[in-house]
Amino acid sequence: MLSVYKKELRLYFVTATGYVFLAFMLLSAGLYTSLVNFVYYSAAFEYVVKDMCFVLLITIPLLTMRVFSDEKKQKTDKLLCLLPIDVKSIVLGKFLALCTITLIPAVVMCAYPVILSSYGVVNFKTAFSCILAFYILECTLCAIGMFTSSLTENQIISAILCFGILLLCYMIPTIAENISSASDFTFKAFTACAAAVCVIIFIASKKWLITLIAALIMEVPLLVIYFKYNELLVGKFASFSQWFAIFGKIDSFTNGVFDITAIVYFITVALLFICFTIQSENRRRWR
């Protein structure tokens, strides 16, 4: 794992990727600080962090797009297969390299509240907890980007796929506010989600029986609830969609609450996508 970690980190800094990511993140942090803190005469750095989440929609796909796609394109994925390292160590090595590179802007951002304290009253606990949450969020998004990169050998497709997922997660709170809470709509929306999951299961397994069993497991309880306990479905799709609002989880930190559940949520999502990446790589190797 250590050898992959070192090699990945080295590759970020011999190519422009690492420098471009750092420059873009630090430039954004500087711009947002100027706009939020200096223009509005406010020393609350947490609002800068909240706004910086938008920048991650662009920087994370750019940073993660090459992680596995480039290996496939350069045919170095075969080397990783040949070497006596298991897939888990390769994925973790790459993930840790991503965590290291994303740590740099987060550490630099820690200086900002200190600088701002010269001009006003800064709540350091809120500011630093916000930066910590922002860093963990970055790592979680990197796990998602790493997964999309493992799906294709085309870096552009990988970046677009990652951007699509992140944009959806970013927009979910707005979408959830505007969708109908009627039970009919909720039933249809859940059925559409179940169908999408079934399609993914079929693509992954290529087995009709498994897909059918999965469809029955998801759809039968839904039908029972729809026909027998209809009122239970009211507004449930909106609250269900909030589960995927990764970016929204940082709001409680901005409001001065150190939300442990959000941290657990970030770590869980990251672990889930690391597992997906391991499965995706294993599947490709043994196909």
Binding site: R10, L11, V14, T15, Q74, K75, T76
Partner: peptide, 8 residues
């Protein structure tokens, strides 16, 4: 195809 990292 030699599996080499071009940037190293």
């Amino acid at each position: 195809i030699p599996p080499v990292y071009e940037d190293l």
